[in-house]
Amino acid sequence: MSSSGPSKMTGTKDEVLGSAKATIGSTIGNHQMEAEGHTQNKGGTAQKEAAGTKQKAEGAGDGLFGHMQKATGQVLGNERMQGEGEMNKAKGTFKSDTA
């Protein structure tokens, strides 16, 4: 996992903490805390969605690279390149499917 860019883990953390903060703020009548909680929760949701979109795009790129690599291997008669291409295609599919 990269330290830059959106993160599903950080997004989930912000969703949960924001929801808790909003609930506590509402319960004790602290409207500022409640509003901050809602904002943090929505920011976490947005971050998770952005991380999923990024992962799908990376998966599509890996899949395309794998397809090209496999085709090139076939043209050159290079079985190793064909195998690596198939692996990269599978990696791309997995990334996209788990986003």
Rank of each mutant, 00 (worst) to 15 (best):
K70I: 01
A99Q: 12
E15V: 13
E49L: 09
A90M: 10
Q69G: 01
A20S: 15
N30W: 04
S96L: 03
G37F: 02
T23Q: 03
D97Q: 14
T39Q: 07
A99D: 09
K8C: 10
Q74D: 11
E15K: 08
S2F: 09
K56T: 12
E36N: 13
K21M: 01
I28P: 06
K13S: 02
K91T: 10
L76P: 11
Q69F: 04
D14I: 05
K21E: 03
T10A: 02
G43S: 11
H67A: 05
G44H: 05
E15T: 12
G43P: 12
D97E: 12
V75K: 10
A51D: 05
V16S: 13
A35L: 11
G92S: 08
K56H: 02
T72I: 02
A99N: 11
A71S: 09
E36Q: 14
A57Q: 14
Q69H: 02
G18T: 09
T53N: 10
Q74L: 10
M1C: 12
G52Y: 01
G83N: 08
G18S: 05
P6T: 00
G63D: 05
S19A: 12
G66F: 03
P6S: 00
H31Y: 10
M33N: 13
N41A: 04
G37N: 08
M9P: 04
E36G: 05
K13N: 06
I24N: 09
A22K: 11
Q40T: 15
S3G: 12
M1G: 14
K8P: 06
L17C: 13
T45L: 04
G43R: 07
V75D: 05
H31I: 08
A46W: 05
K21Y: 00
A60S: 11
T12Y: 00
M68W: 06
T98G: 00
M1R: 12
Q82H: 09
S2Y: 08
N41C: 11
A99F: 05
S7R: 02
M87K: 14
K91E: 08
K89F: 01
T98P: 09
Q55C: 14
Q40E: 08
A51L: 07
E49F: 01
K48S: 02
D14H: 14
T72W: 00
G5A: 00
A35D: 11
F94Y: 09
G59H: 06
F94S: 13
K89G: 08
G52F: 00
K54F: 04
S19G: 13
K95A: 09
A99E: 02
Q40P: 15
M9H: 07
G92I: 02
T93Q: 08
A71R: 01
